[in-house]
Design a protein around this nucleic acid. Sequence first.
DNA 1: CCTTCATGTTTACATCCGTAGTCGATTACG
DNA 2: CGTAATCGACTACGGATGTAAACATGAAGG
Lengths: 128, 128
Amino acid sequence: MADDSPQNERISEAEQAVMEALWARSPLTANEVADAVAPARGWTLATVKTLLSRLVAKQAVETAPDGKRFLYSPRVARVDFATGESKRLVDRLFGGSAAGLFAHLAEAEALSDKDLNQIEALLKELRK
Amino acid sequence: MADDSPQNERISEAEQAVMEALWARSPLTANEVADAVAPARGWTLATVKTLLSRLVAKQAVETAPDGKRFLYSPRVARVDFATGESKRLVDRLFGGSAAGLFAHLAEAEALSDKDLNQIEALLKELRK
DNA sequence: CCTTCATGTTTACATCCGTAGTCGATTACG
DNA sequence: CGTAATCGACTACGGATGTAAACATGAAGG
């Protein structure tokens, strides 16, 4: 019984940049991914290809043959990735308490008025 | 022009465990740190010593000689570490919007009722 | 058909991280 | 005074990560 479920492996920061391109639009060829991310990060095509391979190995990305080449698509949703990373942070730093994170950000003046308003609105929404 | 300011370097997960011990109580000897963290992580004393050295090299920890040995103390406050990591997450995943993070946690059902109540109370507090 | 281009695969290599053993010096105990 | 225990420094080593070149193979064009 192989591990067929996606994403037990961790996605690194460089890899995330590649994922972002695929989350924004997919499927894409390796070249299209490179066009999307390489300039901003100063990468060569070779680097992008390596990252794509690793993501495929990690089952975070899947490939579909398209003639000679591959089309790449995300296997993990951005939402799930974001949830995982967020929870990890909350666990590691705030003992699992999301409110702890919020209190911390407030204390650190890391919340803009806009943030506060949006959070307040969100709370009101949740209360319904 | 040396870099005398603390913590430009990143603190890894294992290193954070050591920092937690020092944040909880300091200064501590290497042995005391080991007693605090090694059992829970299944580490040997050698491992803790290595992590301490790296933290000293990263200027996240400072030493004070105490006879033959050293007393270790944090040079970076836990609050600052938490702020840095939190901001990094918000930037990397939510385009810098803390409200985006909260919206996300709400959507992912990662907010308990307790969290919601506490956040609400905090908001009220901040509004004063 | 043969050469060239595109594209995935393999290999490379420096650095970081997790984990730990060994060495050398110093202190403390018998 | 000499030997054992202590403690920091140095060394080690496999895996992950960042970054990229070399290679193989198949397609496309002349």
